[in-house]
Design a protein around this nucleic acid. Structure first.
Length: 288
DNA sequence: CAAGGTACCTGTTAGC
DNA sequence: TGCTAACAGGTACCTT
């Protein structure tokens, strides 16, 4: 599933392949792919056609390609792919949007099986979190991600203290910290030896620091490995899957021994999804 | 306003 | 063999 590292791999691929190229045609193959572009698919296409694309940018799991005062914003959802390939390549079964370029070179395709992803046009506004570069207005509520210079570790801890929720919920809350999804949340919690239902209000500053370091560590390692792949759904911009799942310590490892203490990893259902943790290293908080 | 539940989706796999 | 249920889960939206 595309979380921050996977989206960054896609961004880098796009940077190589589409920066400076001018869009020729835009074909929306499925209206759901542009459902958040409220003016509709025809408007989406019209806003993009003829534009020269600048270097793609990213915050958390959101990716955007600026052009002048606006941008095309992408979220890959669970299964979205942005594929650069030969303009005459076979049509993918789940092709949602296709862009061709005036140079006649490789096209750009948004392919998305489960359709949770989307593309949309958005105006750019000054970064509400203090960054130098403008950001799409529609993601103003998305927090900086932990690899950004403007991410404030102390503010993150202060915000955790103010919350009345569990630490995994907080990690998945993109308005507190962006880019972390279910997989890297479980991995970061395992490294920090915290159960996901530990109340954020009682996290010490060292614990919060350890958690941030763990999140940066696991996502950085995944980025170095070129993104994680658990099934054929995630493919980077060049169509090649990344490999990282062997490095996972908790996620998806039910009943396998914990890498620290050997206790079988447990699976719990939380927020309608799976959570994996070590029963010994990450004991449930009392009363939870 | 914070917190938490749920709809939205489709392909694969486990189980009977 | 064929069917059904569970599962994968990010985000907007809704209710409390």
């Amino acid at each position: 599933m595309p979380e921050l590292p996977e989206v960054e791999v896609v961004r880098r691929g796009l940077e190589t392949w589409i920066t400076g190229r001018t869009v020729d045609t835009v074909t929306v193959e499925h209206p759901r792919a542009v459902r958040r572009h409220l003016a509709g698919g025809a408007d989406f296409a019209a806003r993009l056609a003829g534009r020269t694309l600048e270097a793609p940018r990213r915050r958390g799991k959101y990716l955007w390609i600026p052009f002048g005062e606006g941008a095309v914003l992408a979220h890959l959802g669970m299964s979205g792919q942005l594929l650069v390939g030969a303009a005459d390549a076979e049509r993918q079964k789940h092709l949602r949007v296709r862009l061709t370029f005036t140079d006649g070179g490789p096209d750009l395709r948004f392919v998305d099986q489960r359709t949770f992803g989307h593309l949309m046009g958005s105006d750019l506004v000054p970064d509400p979190h203090g960054g130098q570069a403008p950001v799409p207005a529609i993601i103003a509520h998305i927090a900086a991600d932990p690899f950004e210079e403007v991410f404030d570790d102390e503010a993150f801890h202060r915000n955790l203290k103010k919350r009345r929720t569990g630490v995994k919920r907080a990690l998945l809350d993109q308005s507190l910290i962006s880019g972390v999804g279910n997989i890297y949340a479980d991995e970061a919690l395992w490294h920090a030896r915290l159960h996901g239902e530990r109340p954020t209000a009682r996290l010490t500053r060292p614990q919060a620091g350890l958690l941030l370091a763990a999140a940066r560590g696991v996502m950085g390692a995944a980025l170095d490995a070129g993104g994680t792949s658990f099934d054929a759904l995630y493919v980077n911009v060049n169509g090649e899957s990344g490999y990282f799942d062997r490095s996972l310590n908790a996620y998806g490892r039910r009943d396998e021994p914990c890498g620290r203490c050997g206790t079988p990893i447990r699976r719990e259902v939380f927020m309608n999804r799976s959570s994996f943790s070590c029963p010994r290293c990450q004991p449930r908080p009392r009363g939870a």
